[in-house]
Write a protein that binds this DNA or RNA. Structure first.
Lengths: 350, 350
DNA sequence: GTGAAAGCGCTAACAC
DNA sequence: GTGTTAGCGCTTTCAC
């Protein structure tokens, strides 16, 4: 029994294909004899018939597939996001065409083309940039778009972000509350939103607490383990500046920094306190377990999917909504309270 | 410029849709005037036309999408496999519908149905079991199948496996060569191939070296961090048996075991040597860095894709090939040589 | 060298 | 209540 189509079902149930189609699409309210319906359902079961989505969607129905474009799943945050979005889609009967642009704008562009040819119902994208035009044309071609944790200038689409600024503030404030006064930062890539915002949160928080922003304590990283290692190494040897804590813009860099510090014979948190960002799974089982900022990835996935659905239904406003989700400090083992000139610092944070 | 179809291109280039279709599919060898062809290509460019894959495939062409079903991407091995397969597919112009069955046979079954309805060109699956019938019917329905690292009894499909038995032997032999005589094992799930084979490799290697297989030193795990922690805890407190090393059937459990040991105030590798399995990214940056067995995931992805293509082309033999890929020991920081009764042990391994 | 027309599997407007 | 038919966007046979 190869390739069974609606015709086979119709034949077996001794009705027309229209009638079969009606029961498939639950257009039965226009009264159909129960007996007929049962006969059709029985035939479908027996033949193991499954409608061909391509044919259905050619006629205007949904493909029930969404495209998801992420920059790089080696970054655990995106991997987690992909997993959670897939989970939500599964529950709603959608498949996910997963596209990892591998940090390449060109690859991202190729993938957008692929998704357009595949006529997916919608796409969620965390863009690496440089594809604004293509993204705009996607929506013009009738494929709705939702921006996931990365903005795209000149693209009018709903967006869901983690509040990276808030996270940067929480991390920095926590260290200050522990008594740290000289807090270093290893940044993310500064051409993307999360990198910029975490930096801004750090700077503002220092200032708000009457502390100076020391440029020598800010090292540029790119979210990789290696760049975290390098950043901490530089802080340790080159700068000659005093510092007692590092806020790393993501967990992977935090692990690199920790290793660099340990390789210099120092230890965490005795000699240096470390805060990460992402709360990746490994941070809860690493040694030491990492104090970090958690983003609510589940919540983000749910919001993204909701936005996707709204766009698919076409009932979204002309001005697209940008949502920001709260971040949360997760205290574990990588920070310690320190004695300052003024004596023990009163710890008081959320 | 919404929805541009082949008609629009034909109109703009002042030819029939047939002619446009010819250049799309490179059926031009049947002599077409170069001028005509150029005009069409120009029109395609200007309109940004992209063929609708659904329509093409309805007429018998490929959908250029494959389905990939994995048990659980929280297991880094599968996540890595998914990433690498996606990469190969990208290079070959294929999209990937990624389906995480989340260790549920029911979810896997639902996903198989989805893939059939979507008429993907082929599916690669690492099954969690209980869906043999469904898998067989997939192939009968014309959607070829490749088994990825997990066999499925009674399903006649090509398969690509890591040589888990070899890995189990390598890990165990390495520990023996380091002088260990009482080697514990934390197993994977014993209802799946990799779990069984790694266990078998462990047992055979002990015996081949004239060592006794001590059931009390074998703890059942399920590839999670928690089960590794629990396994080591049990070994440490309950058994009362002496042992100096643990072979953990995957890295995640190795991390759990390490933590359990450390929580008891012991250290790695001074007090206990640990070998993992998978060589996940984190094993190279963890503390201590983990000695482990590497599977060649890239090679696996390439072979799987090659098998997929062969099945799609339909030129594969009736008796499907089962391939086994070599594993490799990666020595890092989590093991040490120990003194035995007979004095220092000569270390001699590959 | 190029076009007309059938048909892939399906839905929906319209008939009866 | 159910069937006939046009047509979604495309490829391919056959005709010219």
């Amino acid at each position: 029994m190869a390739r069974v189509t609606i015709k086979d079902v119709a034949q077996k149930a001794e009705v027309s294909i229209t009638t079969v189609s009606r029961v498939l699409n639950d257009k039965v309210d226009e009264y159909m004899r129960k007996e007929t319906k049962d006969r059709i359902i029985k035939a479908i079961k027996e033949l193991g018939y499954k409608p061909d989505v391509r044919a259905q969607s050619l006629r205007g129905l949904a493909t029930k597939v969404i495209g998801l474009v992420i920059p790089n799943r080696l970054n655990p945050f995106y991997e987690q996001l992909a997993r959670v979005i897939e989970d939500v889609c599964y529950k709603e009967g959608y498949g996910v065409l997963l596209c990892d642009s591998n940090l390449s704008a060109e690859r991202e562009s190729t993938y957008i083309d692929l998704l357009e040819r595949q006529k997916v119902d919608a796409v969620a994208i965390s863009t690496v940039g440089s594809n604004e035009e293509k993204l705009r044309s996607l929506t013009e071609r009738g494929i709705p778009l939702v921006l996931a944790d990365e903005d795209s200038p000149s693209v009018n689409a709903p967006a869901v972000f983690a509040n990276n600024y808030m996270g940067g503030r929480q991390a920095t404030q926590y260290l200050i509350d522990l008594g740290h006064r000289n807090i270093a930062l290893i940044t993310g890539p500064l051409n993307i939103l999360s990198g910029k915002e975490r930096l801004r949160g750090y700077q503002d928080t220092l200032r708000k607490n009457g502390l100076r922003v020391n440029e020598k304590l800010i090292k540029k990283g790119n979210y990789t383990y290696e760049s975290g290692y390098k950043g901490a190494e530089d802080l340790l040897k080159e700068s000659g500046e005093v510092f007692t804590a590092i806020f790393c813009s993501n967990d992977l860099m935090a692990f690199g920094a920790i290793r660099a510090i340990q390789d210099k014979g120092k230890s965490i948190p005795q000699d240096y306190s470390i805060v990460g960002f992402d709360n990746m799974y490994f941070s809860s089982i690493s040694n030491p377990q990492l104090t970090t900022i958690a983003q609510s990835v589940e919540e983000m996935a749910i919001r993204i999917f909701a936005a996707l659905k709204q766009e698919i239904r076409g009932d979204s406003p002309r001005e697209k909504e940008h949502q920001f989700l709260d971040t949360k400090l997760i205290v574990r083992e990588s920070c310690r309270e320190i004695r300052t000139k003024e004596g023990f610092q009163k710890v008081n944070h959320r």
